[in-house]
């Protein structure tokens, strides 16, 4: 009996998950999905607010939904969140002075790796000059052997 109750409760979970999106039309809903997937939950930092079960994520989802219904643009909603939590809430941080290294770092590392590979390959191509053998000396050396 208890197992059946649990199963029924689990079957009802997806309905709960979409309940708070009910008030949105199709375009609004796709905006809602896109936004909540791009916003980071500050409690469990490796989840977006769409996936997180933290109460704060639920609050932020409600905010996003309410502001979409109120007719605010995506940029305005993002601004609302960065004003409070900083760029950290964005999974896609903006390109500015403090994030320069973050955006350009990988390209710089690739350039560095290419430069190193080039210098190393040139170094290994350099063939050492062939040893010159002086026949006289060789003979002397061989004769010295006991």
């Amino acid at each position: 009996m208890r197992r059946w109750l649990l199963l029924m409760a689990m079957a009802a979970l997806p309905a709960l998950a979409t309940a708070d999106e009910a008030a949105l039309d199709a375009t609004q809903e796709s905006r809602y999905r896109a936004l909540t997937q791009e916003l980071r939950c500050l409690v469990c930092q490796n989840q977006n607010i769409a996936d997180s079960n933290a109460p704060l994520a639920a609050d932020l989802r409600n905010q996003v939904q309410a502001q979409i219904v109120a007719g605010r643009t995506d940029a305005e909603i993002t601004r609302y969140l960065t004003d409070r939590y900083g760029d950290f809430v964005l999974y896609r941080p903006p390109f500015k002075a403090v994030t320069l290294l973050l955006w350009l770092g990988p390209a710089l590392l690739v350039l560095l790796a290419l430069a190193l590979a080039w210098t190393f390959s040139r170094r290994s191509q350099r063939v050492p000059p062939a040893a010159t053998v002086d026949p006289e000396q060789l003979k002397k050396l061989l004769d010295e052997q006991p």
Binding site: L42, V43, L56, D59, L60, Q63, R84, Y85, G86
Partner: peptide
């Protein structure tokens, strides 16, 4: 309701 918390950027 945690409304002030939201405006103050409280996350925990």
């Amino acid at each position: 309701q945690g409304t002030a918390g939201l405006d103050w950027g409280v996350y925990g």
